[in-house]
């Protein structure tokens, strides 16, 4: 029992959560910045710039605005980082890491990964800034739009894996990964392709990247909920967003293509898959402008929902 506790603690703080996720997340951010810069014919910041930024921010004073609710204002960045480290600890990496069953299944993970968005909303409303408030309402509208499709994706995968192994819906992520290692990745299953597409559409919205960087829109809302944050608090928010990049990419990998070698090579393979996802996001970022919130909501209620339902229906019929 005590051993299990320390195992979970290690998973949250060191690997795959905590230190590992921070390092990988910041590196991915650096790659993204550099790649986007190259696509725009710029040189771009050094690959390690996010690390430098973080170190600098951590050494600075956090300024709490007069209108802000101090406790909530300072607490929300911590919630973001903590929930994301926990989410990382719940993500299996094929051949390398299997999460403790005590941490809960896919449905719990689904709620944990929505925590940073919630904390961002809280941050926006607690900051006392009208930009934060608008960012809050946009983040909420966007979340309501993309949470539905992602739930459809999760249920499709659970039903598919459950049916294939002759049981009910399988919400254990470790089992889903095990199934794919035995029967090949789900992305190669044509019934799961629409679900994978729906998940792909969910990634940029959840990470607040173009064309869905609506809640933080720099030229409209001056970063929205992040506007009033400074110093270490801002650093923590950036940190949460870096870990989130790994977690959201990692969940996609676990759901659809976890296969890879064991040991250190497995970690490298995982990082490489995340890198491919971030590379695609960077190309998207360089290729499109920002959507308006109403356009984004309509987009999510149309295509990802359609794809999610399609996968679900195909899985259900084959049952």
């Amino acid at each position: 029992m005590i051993g299990e506790f320390f195992r979970i603690l290690f998973a949250v703080l060191v690997f795959p959560g905590g230190l590992f996720a921070i390092a990988l997340g910041l590196l991915l951010k650096g790659v993204e910045r550099r790649l986007v810069a190259r696509l725009q014919r710029r040189i771009g910041a050094p690959l390690l710039q996010p690390f430098y930024d973080l170190v600098k921010l951590m050494g600075k004073i956090t300024f709490v605005p007069d209108l802000a609710d101090t406790n909530v204002f300072l607490m929300t960045p911590l919630i973001g980082v903590a929930s994301m480290s926990l989410a990382m600890a719940m993500l299996p990496i094929a051949g390398v890491y299997a999460p403790s069953p005590m941490l809960g299944d896919l449905l719990v993970l689904f709620y944990v990964i929505s925590l940073p968005a919630l904390s961002l909303m809280l941050a926006g409303s607690a900051s006392g800034s009208p930009f934060g408030a608008i960012g809050f309402s946009r983040e909420m509208a966007l979340m309501l739009a993309y949470e539905g499709p992602i739930l459809l994706v999760i249920v499709s995968v659970a039903l598919h894996v459950g049916a294939a192994s002759g049981r009910g819906p399988m919400f254990s992520l470790a089992e889903i990964v095990q199934y794919q290692i035995r029967h090949g990745p789900l992305i190669l299953d044509w019934r799961m392709v629409p679900a994978a597409l729906a998940y792909a559409a969910f990634i940029p919205a959840n990470l607040g990247m173009p064309p869905f960087d609506i809640a933080e829109a720099e030229t409209e809302l001056l970063e929205g909920p992040l506007l009033e944050y400074t110093g270490a608090s801002l650093g923590l928010l950036k940190l949460a967003s870096a870990i989130k990049t790994v977690a959201i990419a990692g969940l996609g990998v676990a759901l659809f293509f976890p296969n890879g070698p064991g040991g250190v090579l497995g970690v490298v393979a995982f990082a490489a898959k995340c890198l491919v996802i971030v590379g695609c996001l960077s190309v998207l970022k360089a290729a499109v402008g920002r959507m308006r919130i109403d356009q984004a909501v309509v987009f999510y209620l149309r295509w990802p929902v359609l794809f999610g339902v399609l996968s679900l229906a195909m899985v259900a019929i084959h049952v």
Binding site: L39, Q40, R41, A286
Partner: peptide, 16 residues
């Protein structure tokens, strides 16, 4: 205009 709609690649292209 391109910068405001978040289309920074186009912004860079026109500025170049």
């Amino acid at each position: 205009l391109a910068h405001i709609i978040g289309f920074d690649s186009l912004f860079m292209h026109v500025m170049q």
